[in-house]
């Protein structure tokens, strides 16, 4: 039987809601990460995005809508 492929679990920063792959948030330096998050948002152009304005996001990147 083929070994089960373990899916890489991405984590979300609890303070800035950024979705990160490492052990610390690159933006705010926080290590307060959570695997339990929901809702996925990628902001590409925050200057022209109404969604980013509403979320008060001014940096492009991947975000979680809800982090527990």
């Amino acid at each position: 039987m083929a070994p089960a492929r373990k899916k890489k679990q991405m984590k979300a920063c609890q303070s800035c809601h950024k979705v990160v792959e490492g052990e610390a948030c690159m933006t705010c330096g926080s290590t307060n990460l959570s695997e339990d998050w929901a809702g996925y948002l990628i902001v590409i152009d925050p200057r022209h995005s109404g969604i980013a304005k509403q979320m008060n996001i001014d940096m492009p990147g991947r975000y979680a809508l809800k982090v527990r």
Binding site: G39, I44, D45, P46, L65
Partner: peptide
């Protein structure tokens, strides 16, 4: 492609 954001609500 001028896409500004992509959203997937739970």
């Amino acid at each position: 492609f001028k896409v500004t954001a992509v959203l997937s609500p739970d």
